[in-house]
Design a protein around this nucleic acid. Structure first.
Lengths: 246, 246
DNA sequence: CTGATATCCTTATGCCGTAAAGAGTTGTCC
DNA sequence: GGACAACTCTTTACGGCATAAGGATATCAG
């Protein structure tokens, strides 16, 4: 964990060859690999190769793959804004926070496989938290209530990001196009599970489009984005109720 | 996916030795392994050994480890209630759903590493959804709104479960006791990150206990459970607002 | 019995993280 | 300058993983 919080080390002069790498370039290379090929394809050897070294060379700078992943996570979080404009009230600020967060997760889907695995406790994770607690501080919510709200917000955004990221991977994995996949989903289910609609009437109903939507544009990315927007609205209303109760 | 929905196969008589195993006993054994040793320790070989076979023997019944994990997930979900008593209104019913769900995740922490990885679309997953949509159907919420609420609920409970599961693993991994770990967290941070409190004042504030709590009982399990309860309350209030708006 | 089909095993391939040992480089101290 | 220690990076190796390939054996229909 010391690596997470290291600042610019003094760089005392020491014997031995000049380091050809650094923790920073290793973390950057690892993030590139994860962005391009996904977390499953991330290996020490592959990161080493990208830097013109063997996989083992990385162990001079980083004690293990696990620590490298922690570093990747915290470094990636650095691209998030540190502050949000709450001058128009907490609602738009929280909305902005959630949207930045969602976009971040979609830019680095591999983060979704890190953030839920354990508390990493790096500086940029705290900076992100700091940003959103700062927004909500003005509401007058006491710490205990506020912790609940923070957890709720974070879990919701992460879950929504996960769903969207999945919806992007699923079709390419099966070879069908995006729209086809989601159009096929229901018929596929009826085929493999005869009587699906009768067995799960509520699910069938809730998955149906709303009355005010045309039948011609049922593609999933929009649908899932809509679900995010609705969930966020409901969540904000819940916070509002908590704020009013004091 | 056909395996997920297979009912009792007709069992047509066919040449070859009698099957010594079945998909069911394999899935059960795999769940036992995952419950006892965690998802990371789950391997085909280990499941095979538990059944007195080699790892390769499983491939007669199950096409890949990935499919086995999908089957594990859907089978585990079967232990959840199919219906909830909504006679006292949707609020207690949803609360009950959330508590069952949370307990389920904590009973099988490995599920947390499956459920967010991709849509599995097994029968018991739909049964679980059916149960909670049935609760909310009575609120009069339209499908679009309801989808947002469902996603919100599910993501929240899963995220909360993840946090609690982490808090149980973290100390044992580092070798310190549970209370020590969480007591040490702040001082550890001040040590490794001098000026933490000044750098992240809001985080420091929000992590402080509420005024009406004694200093003598700061252990984390309670704290995290509290956060779950608060989050759920906020969430329910949000749903209530959505219901009133119609 | 024959031939087809099934279960299950052994073996092998190519990944993975990382331990161990050593080659080569660069500094400090005498 | 020479010795030594510290350092980077490589090679090799170990034990694990999922799973492809091939073979031994058991069980059916004919």
């Amino acid at each position: 964990m010391a690596l997470l919080w290291r600042s610019g080390e003094p760089g005392e002069v020491r014997p031995g060859p000049k380091p050809g790498l650094s923790v920073d370039v290793i973390v950057d290379a690892a993030i590139t690999v994860a962005d391009e090929e996904g977390m499953a394809a991330l290996s020490m050897r592959k990161v080493g190769e990208r830097l013109g070294r063997t996989g083992m060379a990385l162990y001079t700078y980083v004690p293990s793959k696990g620590e490298l992943v922690d570093l990747m996570y915290d470094r990636a979080l650095a691209e998030l804004p540190a502050e949000y404009d709450a001058s128009a009230g907490w609602r738009p600020a929280v909305t902005s926070w959630a949207e930045h967060m969602l976009a971040f997760f979609l830019r680095h889907p591999w983060v979704l496989q890190v953030s839920q695995a354990r508390p990493v406790l790096g500086p940029n994770e705290f900076a992100m938290l700091e940003g959103m607690v700062a927004i909500l501080h003005g509401t007058g919510l006491r710490p205990r209530r506020l912790r609940g709200v923070v957890a709720l917000l974070f879990d919701f955004v992460r879950g929504a990001a996960q769903t969207i990221a999945d919806s992007r991977l699923a079709p390419s994995a099966t070879g069908v196009s995006d729209e086809e996949w989601w159009l096929a989903r229901s018929s596929l289910l009826e085929e493999v599970a005869p009587g699906f609609a009768g067995r799960f009437p509520m699910v069938t109903w809730v998955e149906s489009e709303d009355d005010d939507r045309g039948e011609d544009e049922p593609y999933f990315e929009h649908r899932v984005g809509e679900t995010f927007a609705v969930g966020l609205m409901v969540l904000l209303d819940g916070i509002e109720a908590a704020v009013k109760t004091g």
